[in-house]
Lab assay of single mutants.
Amino acid sequence: KEQQNAFYEILHLPNLTEEQRNGFIQSLKDDPSVSKEILAEAKKLNDAQA
């Protein structure tokens, strides 16, 4: 469930490039146990690119 939530949120971050988004999603698939950390990174990058 946590992985699904992170997946959904990353898909809807407006400021990520397609490449960045795909990278985060691939990381989620590779290691779902760190989905919280991956989501935090994605949000940080999204904010930095706002």
Rank of each mutant, 00 (worst) to 15 (best):
A48E: 08
A50C: 05
N22L: 12
L45M: 07
L13D: 01
R21F: 03
D47E: 11
L28D: 00
L39E: 04
Q3L: 06
N5F: 09
A42L: 01
L28M: 09
E41F: 07
E41C: 02
Q49R: 07
E2D: 11
L45T: 10
L13F: 09
S33K: 12
N22W: 10
A6K: 05
Q4L: 05
L45A: 05
T17Y: 04
K44S: 12
V34G: 14
Q20A: 03
R21Y: 03
L11D: 09
E41G: 09
K36C: 08
Q4V: 14
L28K: 00
Y8S: 08
I25F: 10
P32Y: 11
A48P: 02
A6R: 04
Q4H: 15
A48K: 14
D47C: 07
I38P: 00
P14F: 08
N15I: 01
L39K: 03
L16P: 00
I10W: 01
Q20K: 01
F24L: 08
P14Q: 14
G23F: 12
Q20H: 02
K1F: 04
I38V: 15
I25C: 03
E18A: 05
S35C: 04
Y8M: 14
K1E: 15
S35F: 14
L39G: 02
F24D: 00
K44Y: 08
E18Y: 06
I25Q: 04
S27L: 14
E41A: 13
E37M: 11
S33Y: 11
T17A: 03
Q26G: 06
K1G: 15
F7W: 15
T17C: 03
L28G: 01
E9D: 06
K43G: 05
R21E: 01
A40P: 02
E18C: 08
K43S: 07
Q3N: 15
S33I: 09
E19A: 11
S33A: 10
K1D: 14
A6W: 12
L28S: 02
P32D: 05
D31T: 09
A42V: 02
K36P: 11
S35V: 10
V34I: 13
N5Y: 09
S33D: 12
D31Y: 15
Q26A: 09
I10N: 01
K1C: 03
S27G: 10
Q49L: 11
Q49I: 05
E19Y: 04
N15M: 07
E18R: 09
I38M: 04
E37N: 12
A6T: 10
S33L: 09
P32V: 06
P14G: 08
D30K: 14
V34E: 13
K36R: 15
E41H: 09
K43A: 05
E2F: 01
E37L: 15
I38R: 03
E19L: 09
L28W: 05
F24R: 00
A50L: 10
D31P: 02
D31I: 08
N15T: 04
N5W: 04
G23N: 14
A40C: 04
E9T: 04
E19Q: 14
L39C: 02
E37T: 13
E2Y: 01
L11K: 06
N5G: 11
F24W: 01
Q20W: 02
N22K: 14
E37A: 08
T17Q: 04
L45D: 02
L11H: 13
N46M: 02
I10E: 03
A48S: 15
N5R: 08
Q49N: 09
Y8W: 05
H12K: 13
H12I: 14
K36F: 14
F7P: 03
N22G: 07
Q4N: 07
T17H: 04
F7S: 13
A6D: 13
E41R: 12
K29I: 12
G23T: 11
S33V: 05
L16C: 00
K43E: 05
A42I: 01
L13E: 01
A6M: 09
R21V: 06
E37R: 07
Q3G: 08
L45R: 07
L11M: 04
L13Y: 09
D31N: 12
S35K: 11
L39H: 03
K36T: 07
E41P: 00
S35D: 15
S27R: 06
Q4R: 05
F7T: 11
L16I: 10
L13S: 02
F24C: 02
D47A: 10
G23A: 13
K1V: 15
A48H: 15
Y8F: 11
K1Q: 14
S33M: 10
S27P: 01
F7G: 09
L16S: 00
I25R: 02
P32G: 08
K43T: 06
N22A: 11
Q49Y: 15
K44M: 10
E19W: 07
F24Y: 05
L28E: 01
Q20N: 02
A50T: 15
Q4G: 15
Q4I: 14
Q4E: 15
L11W: 06
G23R: 09
Q20Y: 01
P14A: 15
K29G: 04
V34A: 15
Q49M: 07
E9M: 05
N46I: 02
Q20I: 02
K1A: 12
E18I: 09
E2P: 14
K29M: 15
E19P: 09
L13A: 02
N22D: 15
Y8T: 14
K29F: 10
L28I: 10
A48C: 11
N46A: 07
Y8N: 12
R21Q: 07
N15H: 13
Q26D: 07
